[in-house]
Amino acid sequence: MGLLSSILTLPLAPVRGVIWLGQIIQDEVERQQNDPATMRRELEEIDEATARGQLSEEERAQAQQAVLDRMMRPSGGTAPPDGKG
Results as ranks from 00 to 15, higher is better:
Leu68Trp: 04
Ile19Thr: 11
Ala61Glu: 12
Gln65Cys: 02
Glu59Cys: 00
Arg31Met: 04
Gly85Pro: 09
Met72Ala: 11
Pro14Leu: 01
Val15Phe: 09
Gly17Thr: 07
Val15Asn: 00
Glu28Asp: 13
Gly17Ala: 07
Gln32Cys: 10
Arg16Phe: 12
Asp82Arg: 03
Val15Tyr: 12
Ile19Leu: 11
Ser5Glu: 02
Arg73Lys: 15
Glu48Thr: 12
Ile25Thr: 06
Leu21Asp: 08
Arg52Thr: 08
Thr50Asn: 12
Ile46Ser: 06
Thr38Ser: 07
Ile24Glu: 08
Leu10Asp: 04
Asp47Glu: 13
Asp82Thr: 03
Val29Arg: 07
Val67Phe: 01
Val29Thr: 07
Gly22Tyr: 00
Pro81Met: 05
Ile25His: 08
Leu12Met: 13
Arg31Ile: 01
Glu48Val: 11
Gln64Phe: 00
Thr9Gln: 05
Pro80Lys: 09
Ala79Phe: 04
Arg73Ile: 01
Leu4Lys: 15
Ser5Ala: 06
Gln62Tyr: 02
Leu21Asn: 10
Asp82His: 07
Arg31Glu: 04
Ile24Ala: 09
Gln23Glu: 15
Arg60Asp: 00
Glu48Ile: 10
Pro81Lys: 09
Ala13Ile: 06
Glu28Asn: 06
Ile25Ala: 15
Val29Asn: 01
Glu48Asn: 10
Arg40Ala: 14
Ile46Gln: 05
Glu59Phe: 01
Gly83Trp: 00
Met39Gln: 15
Ala13Ser: 10
Ser75Val: 04
Gly83Thr: 00
Ile19Lys: 08
Arg52Leu: 10
Gly22Asn: 12
Met1Phe: 15
Ser75Phe: 03
Gln65Ala: 11
Glu57Cys: 02
Arg60His: 13
Gly17Ile: 05
Gly77Val: 07
Arg41Asp: 11
Ile46Pro: 00
Thr78Asp: 13
Leu10Asn: 02
Pro14Glu: 00
Asp35Met: 02
Pro81Arg: 10
Asn34His: 09
Arg40Glu: 10
Thr78Gln: 13
Ala37Asn: 05
Gln23Asn: 13
Pro80Glu: 07
Gln33Gly: 06
Glu57Arg: 15
Arg60Gln: 09
Met71Thr: 09
Met39Arg: 09
Pro11Ser: 01
Ala13Met: 08
Met39Asp: 06
Leu43Asn: 06
Ser75Lys: 05
Pro74Gln: 06
Leu10Phe: 14
Glu30Tyr: 12
Thr50Ala: 15
Leu68Tyr: 11
Met1Ile: 10
Gln33Phe: 10
Asp27Gln: 10
Glu45Asn: 09
Arg31Ala: 06
Glu59Ser: 02
Arg52Glu: 15
Ile46Met: 02
Leu21Ser: 08
Met39Trp: 00
Arg52Phe: 11
Arg70Asp: 12
Ser6Glu: 13
Lys84Leu: 13
Arg31Tyr: 04
Arg60Ser: 06
Glu28Met: 10
Ser6Gln: 14
Trp20Val: 05
Glu59Ala: 03
Val15Thr: 12
Ser6Thr: 11
Arg41Lys: 08
Glu30Lys: 14
Gln64Ser: 14
Gln33Ala: 15
Ala79Val: 08
Val29Met: 02
Ile24Leu: 10
Ile24Asp: 09
Ala61Asn: 06
Pro80Ala: 07
Thr50Leu: 13
Leu10Glu: 04
Pro74Val: 08
Glu44His: 08
Ala37Trp: 01
Val67Leu: 01
Glu30Trp: 15
Ile46Tyr: 08
Asp27Gly: 10
Asp82Lys: 03
Arg41Trp: 04
Ile7Asp: 11
Pro14Arg: 01
Pro81Tyr: 04
Gln54Glu: 14
